[in-house]
Structure formats: structure tokens, C-alpha cells
Design a protein around this nucleic acid. Structure first.
Lengths: 347, 347
DNA sequence: GCCGTGGATGGAAGCGCTTACATGCGGAGG
DNA sequence: CCTCCGCATGTAAGCGCTTCCATCCACGGC
């Protein structure tokens, strides 16, 4: 309040500071960045001027001169469910710890590339232009756009994407976990299964889960599509499925939200979970624990995924080699009530 | 693949395009931005060169020349629960629709300003330096930092913050909703109440809810603090509360996550919800609907909050006046099972 | 007492782009 | 046929900063 609030948005420049301190802009820059020697008295004068003028270096100026942005981007399909939010938490935390800003881009709502100038490509290009590196979730972005990014040599980390030269990839384990889950369900004595949320894209997480389930259960499991990975579309699909003739004994859902929708549908139809139908999810989101019955699911380390992506990206940007360019993180089977009764003392 | 992938990250400049097209950089710029006249043939040449070179204007260069960033920021405490994530969804959607990037900053983990150069202040300044406007959640940022932002004339929208000259503020209604909720609980015949998640800061959302509840229930309600607004700390606090002597008949929680924790605690203690103790939440997050019993809560329009903030900020940046500088959005009481039995046919 | 040396500082050239402003040109009007 | 006008284009001056390089100065060693 004692200072004149004349600090126009982006107003005061290094020249004004220099003039006020009676030095050259070079000296101001050196003082502020700690590059090069500056005499004690000079330093004082400069810092005082900076303080009085409330000087903050123009980000655009710095970026242009330095040739870098000190910002990293991340592209995800949406933030509706907890999944991407959790990954984002881990990513933001580490990235800002490393002194870089985080620019986000959700591809939700943009046209899924029919050919030609599409919105996603433009948005990703725009984003790529203002960051030093990018994290992109699996199938949020058309393949040719990913290739364009790789070709541009932009440091790139892909989450839940098949290994790819020119980029680091990172994902949670899927297939083995799916097999473990399937075996667990077999242990309950269930026989007919449905896999709800059948895969869209080959090689994405859900596809791999389906592969694993399929390996173990063979023809005893039928794939059933949901429109999206949301409670609502899980509910809709489950309603159809459970009302049908060959009602499965257990529904293995692609993710927790679809599973929650399934439980809702079962309830609506007067079916008891897990007595009439067992239900399992994937991810172990918060609601999984609070659902009744609590959801049996596969926990994947969402925050760690984000954190590791951030670190890998930083290494890439720094020009360091990344130890393991295509890493897979372990998951954990979380057995709760929704998959069937367990002996009270049992594990 | 047919093109040379020599596009170094941030490599090709407008000069190279100009040279290749045989024109000046001014013409290239005019062609790409659509400012000023360009002859058809020239336009063709330029566009072809742009295409062949995969030219994308350097963001830093553009920003510096234009004097703007084409990016907006948002500051929130964390992204753990669904609340801030939902607001962010609304914000991101509208902002990117308006052709601007979104830069995020979570204050989680940064020291809460003991005096002196603190991490939050620095992070916010850094953010402020790379955007054209900022949205800040209520009490994520120390008061003097907010004042600094206002003084800097940076377009600023505050969410869940008391009205303030120099900034637009936006929030959901709290007090009246709290009164309505309290009345509803009284209608169930409950008598002793606890308000779990007692306010930290005067004037923030939770404080206003507490005020409303207090107005109606008077001394029949006791405030009980939780460490954070999370399931875990709600659980811990509820455990203590419900195990104590003067166990309340109804627990009004500051938000849904605390309420979910409370339900967990009740279950752990062998108490039936709502028979032994009624529980209510706030926000209507996804898990509220899936909890058993389903949570009675106050729904607030989280996405709309974000969307409106984005639009207001855009108006501010454009220099337009904002119609209503201090707006309050309506909420809705969502009655489910956790507050007590309702007549089957009742509303 | 002179030169060498290194610390402190200023000058100035970019970084990549936008945009007045100047220039050049061809056609319409007289 | 000459002038005037307006479209198409180029020239160059920034935008705010970093940093290489040159300059200057004081001091210690000979």
C-alpha cells in the first residue's frame, strides 16, 4: 500500500529498474539471475529498485531470450473421473517442484479427427508451442499427431501407450493383473462372465485387460461394449446385460466407474451383489471403497504414474538419458465384497 | 514421413518460411494471421512453404510482440477430491473454447506463508507472469498476495471469496442452503447436532455453512474440527466424536468427503446410519450417490462455477465490463437416505 | 614505477514475431 | 497521356530479456 500501485499488468521493464538503480540492464539481469559477478553495493541498489518497482521479468521476454518456456504440458481426454485427476495431481506436484509450470489440455469435446484440419491437432500444436515437453495419454490423440510430435523432437512421454521409438512410454500393468483377477473370480466358483467396457483401441489399457481376462476365461467370458467409461454408460450397458437372457454370473468391468454403474443397475433390477451377480472394477478410485458392497478392484498407482511421467519428461528435457524408456508399474488386486463372499478370517 | 523431419523443437522460423516462399516475413505474418491484404498467388506460395517446413510460430515471439499470452491461469489448493477437479473441468472447457491455454497451479504442499519470501507467493507471481488473467480459489492464497494481484491490475476472478473491489468474485450459495438443510434435519425429529469440519477461515464456504446451520440450530449444534476436508480426516474426527459421551443424533458435515468418512466411522463403531446417527454432506460428488446409505447433501454447480469464472475472466481481459461482479450461484438440497427415513411416497 | 590480471560493468547483438510506415505498381479517371 | 489512388509488398523498429565481448579499474608482483 505504501508503494505506488502503478504496476500495470506486465508494465515495468528491466530498463526502468536499471535506470532507477543507475546501472545497465545487463547488471540487473546478472544480479537477478546470479550469473556473473556483481559488487555488493551494486547488488543492493538493484535489489532495492526491483523491490520498489515490484519488477517481475516478462515471461515472454525471458522465454524468447532463453529459448525455453519453463513449462510442461499434459494432454488427457477429460477430467471427469478420478483417474486422470489423480495422475494430474502426481504430475503437477513433481513438475512444479522442478520449477516448471503446467499447461493442461483436455481433448474432450473436440472432434475425433475425420480427416483434415481437426481441432485436436491444432490444440496440441498450440500446446506444443508453449512448453518444453509434453505428456500425452494413450489414445487421446490421433496417431499421426503423435508422430508429428515425435518428428518435431519435442520431449515426449506417453502414458498407457504402446512402446514407441522417439518417446518414453509409461503405463500400469494390465494383462497379468487381469489374469489374477480372473483366477480370483474362478476361485469363487463363478462360471459365466461378461467383460463390460470392451476395448475400443487395440493396445490401450482396457484392451490389455480384456486380453488377460480372455486368456484365463476363454469362451466363458463375453465382451460387452459401453459407450464411455462412466457410471452412466456402465449403468445403461449393465441394465441391458443383466436384463437379458444369458445373465452372467460375474461382471468384470473395465474400470471402477463402469462397475459402480453396474452395481446401480443390479440394484435397480432387484439383483443382489455379489449374491446374484459379482462385480469387479479397476483403478481403485475413492468411490470404490465407499460403494456397498465395496468394490473388488485392481489398484493402479495413478499418482505415481503422473509423478514418474514428470520426472522422465524432465530428464528428457535436460537431455539426460532415461533409464528405462518403456516402463510398466505394478498393480495390486484389492479384494472387497463385490466379487463374492469370503471366509471371515480369510485373506 | 515424406517431409524431412528436420523440425527441431522450435526450429523453423518465419525467416525460413519467407525465404522459401520468396517473400518478406511481413507477408508471411500477414498471410498467417489474416491481417492486411495478400494476393492470391502469394498466399499460395506462403502456405505451401509453411506446410513443407511444418512451421509453427514461436509462442514466445508472438507473445512478446503481441504483448499478451493467450493463456489463463487457475490456482487451487489441490485436486484430490472431485470438487476442484469438477470446477477445473468447467474452466478448462470454456477457456480453451475461447482459444486460450490453461495453466494450473496447486498450492498443496507449499508452505502457508510464515512471513517472508514464501513459496506460494513466488509460484503465484510466476504464474501471473505467464497469463493474461487468473482465477483463484478463496483461501488458497494469502490475503496480501491477492492484494498484490489486484494492485497489478491483472484480470482476476476469485471463487468462494468475499466480494472485493478490483476483482470479480463468484461463489455458490451457502448460508441459506445450510438453513434449509438444518430445517430438514429438524423435520426428522433430530435434536442434538454436530457440525463436522468447523471453519478455518472466516468467510470461506465452510464458515458460511456453519453460520447458516448455527442460525437455525443455535446451541443444539456443536462445531467439531477436522484436520482437512478429506475422507480420512473426516473418519478420524467422526470416530472421536461418535465414540464420545454426548454422541450427536445428526452429523452435518462440511462436505461430502468428510461425510463419507463419518459413515465409515459409524460403521466401524457398529452404529447404523441413519438409524443411530444421521449424516449429511455437501457438494454432491459422485461417491455421495454410491455410498450406502446414499448421502443427503447440498448440490452445488461445480462445473458451472468454473465455466462462469472462465467467461467472466475473458470479459475482464477483453476490457468489457462484467455484468455482475459478485455473483452467487444457487444450490439444491438433495435428500437421500443418510439423513433419516422418509415416507416411501414422499418427496 | 610499470605491466599483468581478474573482477565489475556497459554495449550491443540477437531471440522470433507483429506492425506502422514507406515504396512500388497498375488501372481508372480526366 | 498524365495523375491519383489503392492494393500488394518490403523495411525496419520495436516487444523485454540474456549474454558474449569489450572496456575499465584497482591491485599485486617484478
Amino acid at each position: 500500500m505504501d508503494e505506488r500501485a502503478d504496476a500495470q499488468a506486465g508494465g515495468v521493464t528491466i530498463y526502468e529498474v536499471a535506470q532507477r538503480a543507475g546501472v545497465s540492464i545487463a547488471t540487473v539481469s546478472r544480479t537477478l539471475r546470479g550469473t556473473g559477478p556483481v559488487a555488493g553495493a551494486t547488488r543492493e541498489k538493484v535489489l532495492r529498485a526491483v523491490e520498489e518497482l515490484r519488477f517481475t521479468p516478462s515471461r515472454a521476454g525471458v522465454s524468447l531470450a532463453e529459448g525455453r518456456h519453463a513449462a510442461n504440458g499434459i494432454v488427457f481426454p477429460n477430467l471427469s473421473g478420478p483417474y486422470f485427476a489423480e495422475v494430474l495431481i502426481g504430475y503437477e506436484e513433481v513438475t512444479s517442484e522442478l520449477g516448471r509450470s503446467v499447461v493442461i489440455l483436455s481433448t474432450k469435446g473436440r472432434e475425433p479427427t475425420p480427416r483434415g484440419t481437426d481441432a485436436i491437432r491444432d490444440a496440441v500444436r498450440e500446446l506444443a508451442g508453449r512448453v518444453d515437453g509434453l505428456v500425452v495419454f494413450g489414445s487421446t490423440v490421433p496417431g499421426d499427431v503423435v508422430e508429428e510430435l515425435v518428428a518435431s523432437r519435442l520431449p515426449l512421454v506417453l502414458i498407457s501407450h504402446a512402446p514407441m521409438p522417439g518417446a518414453v512410454t509409461l503405463r500400469s500393468e494390465n494383462t497379468a493383473s487381469a489374469r489374477a483377477l480372473a483366477h480370483h473370480l474362478l476361485g469363487h466358483g463363478h462360471a459365466e462372465f461378461a467383460f463390460l467396457g470392451a476395448p475400443y483401441a487395440t493396445g490401450d489399457d482396457v484392451d490389455l485387460r480384456w486380453q488377460g481376462v480372455r486368456e484365463v476365461l476363454g469362451d466363458a467370458v463375453q465382451p460387452v461394449l459401453t459407450a464411455e467409461y462412466t457410471v452412466e454408460s456402465g449403468y445403461q450397458a449393465a441394465l441391458r446385460l443383466l436384463r437379458g437372457a444369458g445373465r452372467p454370473r460375474a461382471v468384470i468391468c473395465s474400470d471402477d466407474e463402469v462397475a459402480l454403474g453396474t452395481i446401480l443397475a443390479a440394484e435397480e433390477l432387484g439383483l443382489s451383489v455379489p449374491h446374484d451377480v459379482a462385480v469387479t472394477g479397476w483403478d481403485d478410485i475413492m468411490a470404490a471403497r465407499h460403494a456397498r458392497p465395496a468394490l473388488t478392484t485392481v489398484r493402479q498407482p495413478m499418482r505415481e504414474l503422473g509423478a514418474r511421467a514428470a520426472r522422465a519428461l524432465d530428464a528428457l528435457i535436460a537431455g539426460l538419458g532415461v533409464e528405462d524408456a518403456h516402463r510398466t508399474l505394478d498393480t495390486e488386486l484389492i479384494v472387497r465384497g463385490s466379487c463374492g463372499p469370503h471366509p471371515p478370517g480369510g485373506h
